[in-house]
């Protein structure tokens, strides 16, 4: 028995990355970033607002949080709808009472289905990030390019027509892309995407159709990862976010501005028994004069201004 000889050949074994999307870069050797108003740490809340059709199509894969039982899966359909009816408003209130604008990564179908929800997000001064069309709108390697391109365009177009503004950013479902996604996002007019988790500051991604910024939305710090996957309490989540902000503030003093992404899910963090500890966390972060809050667009503008 032996493997194909190709298996111990390494055509891309050379200096730098094994792809052309971005060059290697060490965070600690970059020029320091100075955020507006002298803030040292910018917290970037991103709320994922998701619509799960009760009939999953699994093409190319079934999104996390999707239906699990035989049809009709009322329990998951409605538990996810709890997020778009109740949880989102608890989360928005937690931020709005401190005057904080957040990013909302929204399935475009929700803007059509629930115009009041979209209007409330816009009138609250929040940013909308294009987040596919609905939770059947997943992307993965091998997906037909025309279909992917149409899905991306539809998401941006529907959100633009519902809110009057074309989103500047994109978040893929489960951060899952094909090799074409970054280029198709540039072609759809996106300025940034949030899918790659290899950094802690915005950085440039190159595609055949031009550059796009990746603003890393740390999945390890998401409520889905910590509360749903790792099964920790909201108290533990809040402690972990506090530990992260303490650490990043320490680094900021020496190395320049840092960011702390908070990826939130209304049907997870917006539950009655969790929201109190979450509100308290936001209060504490907001009380700290060294910490500010920013949307993705604001982060992008500030990181490019320097």
């Amino acid at each position: 028995m032996s493997l194909d000889p190709e298996y111990i050949e390494y055509p891309k074994r050379k200096r730098g990355m094994d792809h052309d999307f971005y060059p290697y870069s060490n965070l600690f050797s970059r020029p320091k970033i100075a955020w507006d108003d002298g803030k040292e740490l910018l917290v970037w809340p991103v709320i994922s607002l998701e619509y799960f059709p009760m009939v999953p199509n699994d093409d190319p894969f079934r999104a996390p949080g999707h239906m699990q039982t035989a049809y009709p899966d009322y329990r998951h359909y409605t538990a996810r709808e709890y997020g778009t009816r109740i949880g989102i408003y608890r989360l928005l209130d937690a931020f709005e009472k401190r005057g904080i604008a957040v990013s909302v990564a929204m399935n475009a179908a929700l803007a059509q289905r629930y115009p009041q929800l979209a209007a409330d997000i816009v009138s609250g001064g929040h940013e909308i990030i294009a987040h596919s069309v609905d939770m059947n709108g997943t992307i993965a390697g091998g997906m037909d390019e025309t279909r992917e391109s149409e899905l991306i365009a539809k998401s941006f177009d529907l959100l633009e027509s519902a809110t009057g503004k074309r989103p500047q950013g994109w978040l893929s479902i489960a951060r899952s892309q094909s090799f074409n996604t970054p280029r198709l996002l540039v072609e759809a007019g996106a300025r940034y995407m949030c899918d790659w988790v290899n950094d802690e500051l915005p950085y440039q991604f190159d595609t055949a159709s031009g550059p796009i910024t990746n603003i890393p939305l740390n999945h390890e710090l998401s409520d889905r990862q910590i509360i749903n996957v790792q099964q920790h309490s909201m108290d533990s989540y809040a402690e972990q976010i506090r530990d992260a902000s303490d650490w990043l503030l320490e680094e900021a003093a020496e190395y320049g501005g840092r960011m702390l992404p908070l990826h939130l899910t209304p049907y997870i963090s917006g539950l009655p028994f969790r929201i109190g500890a979450f509100e308290q966390l936001i209060e504490e972060l907001a009380e700290n004069a060294r910490i500010g809050f920013a949307t993705g667009e604001a982060l992008l503008d500030q990181s490019q201004a320097g």
Binding site: M17, Y24, S25, N26, L27, F28, G141, S172, A174, R175, S176, Q177, S178, F179, D195, W196, V197, N198, D199, E200, P216, H219, E220
Partner: peptide, 16 residues
């Protein structure tokens, strides 16, 4: 491929 989260999570090591 590309497994964006799997790859980029590990690439965090070398950058940061």
């Amino acid at each position: 491929h590309p497994d964006v989260v799997g790859y980029s999570h590990r690439d965090h090591a070398n950058r940061i």
